[in-house]
Design a protein around this nucleic acid. Sequence first.
DNA 1: TTGAAAGCGCTAACAA
DNA 2: TTGTTAGCGCTTTCAA
Lengths: 342, 342
Amino acid sequence: MKSNDSVKRSRRSTGAVTLRDVALLAGVAPITASRALNTPNQVSPEVLQKVQDAVTSTGYVPNRMAGGLASSHSRLIAAVVPTLVGSVFLEMIDSLTNTLFDSGYQLMLGQSGYSQAHEDALLDAIIGRRPDGIFVTGVMGPGKGRTRLQASGIAVVESWDLTPTPIDMLIGFSHEAIGTEVATYLMGKGHQRMALIRADDERAARRASAFVDQVTRNGLPEPLVVNAGGLRSVRSGRNALTQVLSQMPDVQAIFCSSDMLATGAITEARARGIRVPDQIAVMGFGNVPFAADLIPALTTVHISGGEMGVTAAHYLIARAEGKPVDLPVVNVGFSILERDSA
Amino acid sequence: MKSNDSVKRSRRSTGAVTLRDVALLAGVAPITASRALNTPNQVSPEVLQKVQDAVTSTGYVPNRMAGGLASSHSRLIAAVVPTLVGSVFLEMIDSLTNTLFDSGYQLMLGQSGYSQAHEDALLDAIIGRRPDGIFVTGVMGPGKGRTRLQASGIAVVESWDLTPTPIDMLIGFSHEAIGTEVATYLMGKGHQRMALIRADDERAARRASAFVDQVTRNGLPEPLVVNAGGLRSVRSGRNALTQVLSQMPDVQAIFCSSDMLATGAITEARARGIRVPDQIAVMGFGNVPFAADLIPALTTVHISGGEMGVTAAHYLIARAEGKPVDLPVVNVGFSILERDSA
DNA sequence: TTGAAAGCGCTAACAA
DNA sequence: TTGTTAGCGCTTTCAA
């Protein structure tokens, strides 16, 4: 009677409870214990009960690294955002995380927006974990990262943009259409001399060009474009308004590339005793949670981050489980929320 | 000459390039290739070069699940936050993610703040990944989660609070001290009739009690406490101010449990033509990035999320690599940032 | 319904 | 410095 059987371990083991321990205690083979946990209806009720009891009494938590290695199915989804701070991506990451969790998947998070080298390294680190899917904020331009992603064969959802050549799946909207519609909206309000405050960001630049095109196409003076730099902060919005005012003192309407910048512009206007929207109309982009509660309530472009997150999660899970995704490219659109600031 | 050697694979393989492929191509044993990648100075320059060439030409990305399983060292750190949206934890998660990444670790993110059942499930999901460390926002109360965490033997950093009984490491500050000091600060400004707007959150409650204690201890009337509910939004702040005004029309100073709530209170005051800080002083908590740029600039309590994130990352990495952590419990403190609103 | 055997891709341990 | 062997803890495959 080797009574120390259950504690005998190789030198390499970590000492944690393994499936083998559970199986031993339940008096079945490891594979049977595995089935009891993963496909319980393939196992008799008695065995199921014994295994469950053994799990409870040992406090067993399955090692997903081992499971993932054996099954090549990690139940891990990676998400890449440019940055988290002060960001418009939070709602999306929130719904992504929760939707994934509800289906038994975990979220690995990476921030790409520091340098190209950082992004490449991040992608390699992600691929090394063999996630079942990758969510990318934005569309991946040609380059090392895109090639590696494609070569990896991992399911990919790109987002926040449209492209005729997605790597795999795509959930986005048209920045050009937004620029055009916002211009049309502001022109419809009778504004003629317009300016644009934008962050140093490629998608904001595309909204800006479309805006400028639409305005000039209608015979109005070319809008002033001010680049507020990399930060989407209230501070940069305040500074940018100062710059707009010095270059175009009679500006009538300003389209900002984020709600934070718009909040800054409105704040600076107030500090200078300029009335919004009477003297200057201000529009934002993103519809942050507090946009409606500011004074004046912010007129802005709404993007449904929550919807993108949930949809992306569903797509990625479907792919991971070998189910077909009917509409792997979807334009979620946007809407202009007319409130008080413009 | 079996020229098809390099493509021969078992049926279970995923077809991805493995270390074996690299080793074969470089003409060395797999373990040698492994050493070339992980401990390059244990390998001759020629072998190193050959392996690196093989890696480049094959596009090999090491499988970290396999490596983690073999070495029981996952290079994965999990972080648990109550919620991401509208949150004060962003700066911390940002610095945590980046500091970890720079040392070759990845961040797995989970949101706990929905229910106890959700939190327990989240913890099991995390433990199942065998991360090298876990970062918890807050201190874990007694319960299933805490027990499981302790049993797992994984390095843990608790944060945003102090406790005499941390699970392992702790990086936090005293909410009681904040309540007391803010009360002292406001009394020092001559305020007598005070109110408190707080989110439905245990730590905010402790700041509130300490605040109330300090005020009454000094013989002033007991502050009014308004619970703004679970959301830390501008909207709730506006509503809460309305409530404060109806119950204590002559209120002189209000301490809000977050900058968002404070922003809401200031906004509502403005909508009612009440001047801040002349008629009512308002203080926030958290020092969000835009606090200094509001009108009036927000007087608030600053907590260094960035510092907590960086420190936590260093502690967790040190533990993961078997190095000692000299000061596993640290009080990072706080500071009152006097600006214009109070 | 249950189990034995053979891996998944990598690294620790030991040897040469 | 390099290699052999034997796992890490789980699941696939095949057989009973």
